[in-house]
């Protein structure tokens, strides 16, 4: 049998408006990491070695090499690792050993990058959080139009929006719709 061809969530979508752009980010793996009970210090050390970062505080994201690590829950983090490697969870699991547990999440989420000076005008129609006045390293999960969304603020002012794969088509339609409403 022929090798299986992977499909991205948004079929490499990209679109520009006056002051706002949306583009799918592909070739990135997501791995959820949980701290094994009682191994907090060792887990932090293992993460430093494996990903080169300190653990982010609640509601924040830290750069990790060419990727990111964000806090998702007490004792739980989401690593975003460039590479297109569908065994990234196994590799990270090996790196952290008994200090924690890893689960592949790349396929469960689609990732959109949004940029432009009208970002907040669009996001205020979409997400209930106060994104206009949040910290530079903000990253949090909430809901947009009844669908889950993880909002990550990047260093250059752009944002990442992560949303579950199976409802992603509707999520993108909703985002396009509010953008059309705001910008036209």
């Amino acid at each position: 049998m022929d090798k299986l061809t992977p499909l991205s969530v948004f079929e490499n979508y990209s679109r520009d408006w006056d002051g706002f752009s949306i583009a799918e980010i592909t070739g990135v793996e997501l791995v959820s990491l949980s701290v094994a009970g009682g191994h907090e210090k060792e887990f932090a050390k293992a993460m430093k070695t494996a990903l080169g970062c300190a653990l982010p505080a609640p509601g924040t994201v830290v750069p990790a090499g060419e990727g990111l690590v964000m806090w998702t829950a007490p004792g739980q983090y989401l690593a975003m690792i460039p590479g297109g490697n569908d065994r990234a969870d196994e590799e990270l699991a090996a790196a952290i050993g008994a200090t924690g547990y890893a689960v592949l999440q790349s396929d469960g989420w689609g990732i959109l990058q949004i940029s432009g000076d009208k970002i907040f005008d669009v996001l205020e129609r979409f997400v209930p959080l106060n994104l206009r006045n949040c910290a530079d390293n903000f990253a949090a999960r909430t809901s947009a139009h009844h669908m889950a969304v993880i909002c990550v603020r990047l260093l250059d002012g752009a944002w990442l929006l992560l949303t579950p794969r199976t409802s992603a088509a509707g999520f993108l339609e909703s985002l396009e719709h509010v953008t059309d409403n705001v910008i036209g």
Partner: peptide, 10 residues
Amino acid sequence: PLLGPRDASE
């Protein structure tokens, strides 16, 4: 306690 004020709809 960790994330600050959030709308009850979450």
